[in-house]
Write a protein that binds this DNA or RNA. Structure first.
Length: 290
DNA sequence: AGGGGGACCTGTGCGC
DNA sequence: TGCGCACAGGTCCCCC
């Protein structure tokens, strides 16, 4: 379930399990996920220390003592679980609504301190790569990414400039990771609704105050979702060290046919509609989004 | 260059 | 109960 906020929540869960620990063994249980694992994947991980776990857009980036970075993308259905002997009062595992089918455990990392990090991904849309950290500016998955929503670079004027001349719908443009990094189908719908911008509006017509509002909505939606993931995390962090996975109530996503929450009182006379753009569902209020 | 459509996978929920 | 279909939070790649 990973858009930027979910990936950030996962990152925060992986930090205590991985940072500072040497990888004692690594195993891929199959040759590929979405793409083939890089050459000598397990050997390049074994024996090196994880110095830091970063995130860029929806990518998790484990910085290794070897000078390489392990890049991990969760695709649509990727998830990590952690088992640990000695991380008391620390996240010991992620909590999911349904248990993982072990048949889809594709990568297993054993780290110091009895920590085992397992990557499970039924659909295998996720992928992993290893690259020299020094070449990150030209790394194929990272080099073309737009600004993070919470960065100074991401602003109304930036967004207007980035969307200028684009003839397709703004919904599609916001999913383009080169324009802004980390948004997915849910948060694009939510941000457009908050800004009262129609998902069908031509991207190139977003300018001025409208661009400002949209950039602000993107920022706010992402920030709140991260905070909600964090609060869930605290709520679920019990003595066994469980880490809650992000849960959220959406204003439009998945709410086709329900009354809009567009008015101050919470009830809009219109109902949320669903339409399909580029083969993906868009949820919006036909009355309030223009 | 930008935009549209298909491809990659498995799982789930629904209508018949 | 079984079957087929639609749909699912992402990205890449090919074509125009």
């Amino acid at each position: 379930m990973p858009e930027l906020p979910e990936v950030e929540t996962v990152r925060r869960g992986l930090v205590p399990a991985m940072e500072g620990r040497r990888i004692l063994s690594a195993r891929a249980n199959r040759p590929d996920l979405r793409f083939a694992f890089p050459d000598r994947f397990a050997e390049r991980l074994t024996g090196t220390r994880v110095e830091r776990v970063d995130r860029r857009a929806k990518y998790l980036l484990a910085r290794l003592g070897s000078g390489e970075t392990l890049l991990m993308h969760l695709g649509m259905s990727g998830r990590f679980s952690i088992t640990a002997e000695d991380i008391s009062r620390q996240p010991g595992d992620f909590v999911y609504a349904a248990p993982a089918n072990p048949a889809h455990n594709h990568v297993v990392l054993e780290l110091e301190g009895g920590v085992v990090v397992t990557y499970n991904d039924p659909r295998r849309f996720g992928f992993m790569d290893l690259f020299e950290t020094a070449v990150e500016p030209t790394q194929k998955y990272l080099s073309l990414l737009g600004p993070e929503p919470d960065s100074n670079q991401f602003s109304g004027p930036y967004l207007a400039e980035a969307l200028k001349g684009r003839r397709g719908p703004v919904k599609t443009a916001l999913l383009d990771q080169r324009i802004v990094a980390g948004l997915g189908n849910i948060y694009v719908c939510e941000a457009l609704w908050r800004a009262r911008v129609s998902p069908r509006r031509k991207a190139g017509t977003i300018a001025g105050a409208r661009a400002e509002a949209l950039a602000g909505s993107v920022r706010a939606v992402i920030a709140e979702a991260i905070a909600a993931g964090g609060s869930t995390l605290r709520d679920y962090a019990g003595p066994d060290g469980a880490l809650g996975y992000f849960q959220h109530r959406f204003d439009v996503y998945g709410r086709e046919g329900e009354p809009g929450r567009c008015e101050a009182e919470g009830t809009c006379p219109a109902r949320i509609e669903r339409l399909v753009q580029q083969g993906r569902s868009t949820f919006f209020c036909p009355r309030c989004q223009r």
